[in-house]
Amino acid sequence: MKSASLVTAASIILVANALALIHSARNRAGSPEAEITLTNRELRYFDQSATDDDSGVTLHLQWTDPASFPVRAGTERKQSWLDRTKLQTLGFDCAVDPGNSEAARFYERQRPRQVFAALEYDSAAWRALVEEFERARAKQQADAGSNDSTAAAGMSRLVAIDADLNPVRLRARHPDRRTVLILPAVIAVMLDRWPYYGMKPESEHPPQIAGRIQELPSSIHVPRPFSDQFRRPDRSQPKVFINPIYSVRPSLA
């Protein structure tokens, strides 16, 4: 048939779109996997309408990784939940001892893995981080050092607490759908040389195998009419988010 390739080209466009629509419809069918009300601390809107050519409204998911919480620099190192044992269950090869001279290269060579992460909102994990921060701040102030007292106040209360290769298993461990989100995540392994990367190993602070969440699907498109609310001129955000400016209830499939 002379126009077979033309029909094929048009079909590729239509079939690809149909698959996207079916995927989306399946995602939206049934009850949501999780439904949590988040505020502008967890879903940030970077208004660039004056300089950007993109008129779409996108919210960016912010989360707090306990391993990189800023208070850590002023306190003793604590082992993150994303430790050697957890990393092994996620498929990473942690056979080389962190004290080995080859360890840095061995862990650098390992590629980030696709897993599922559990993020808990405004939970005991978050409160523990804040308390730890407050203690460190008090200590620093006592030592006559100044500190940004609002650093924790502006941070996302969505804290990464667990990960697994299987989302069903992860949900079974964290069944509360109003406080825990299960999201696909990219986790990387590294040799953690406390307090900063590149420091020579010390006997007091031996290097550790640690993981970090490298990426989460963090962009959420806001459709009309909800997006109109974000374009209001009075929607400018203060630098520090103490009181909620807006709240969003995304339904996750």
């Binding site: 080209a9 590729i12 996207a20 989306s24 996108t58 696909p184 699907p217 962009s219 498109h221």
Partner: peptide, 26 residues
């Protein structure tokens, strides 16, 4: 496909590369 993925907040997938490549080849 980028717009469809964005509008429906679909997690990005490598399969889009297959659709684009097949379309360009045709």
């Amino acid at each position: 496909l980028a717009v469809a993925g964005s509008v429906f907040n679909i997690v990005s997938t490598e399969r889009a590369l297959l659709a684009w490549g097949a379309f360009a080849i045709v």
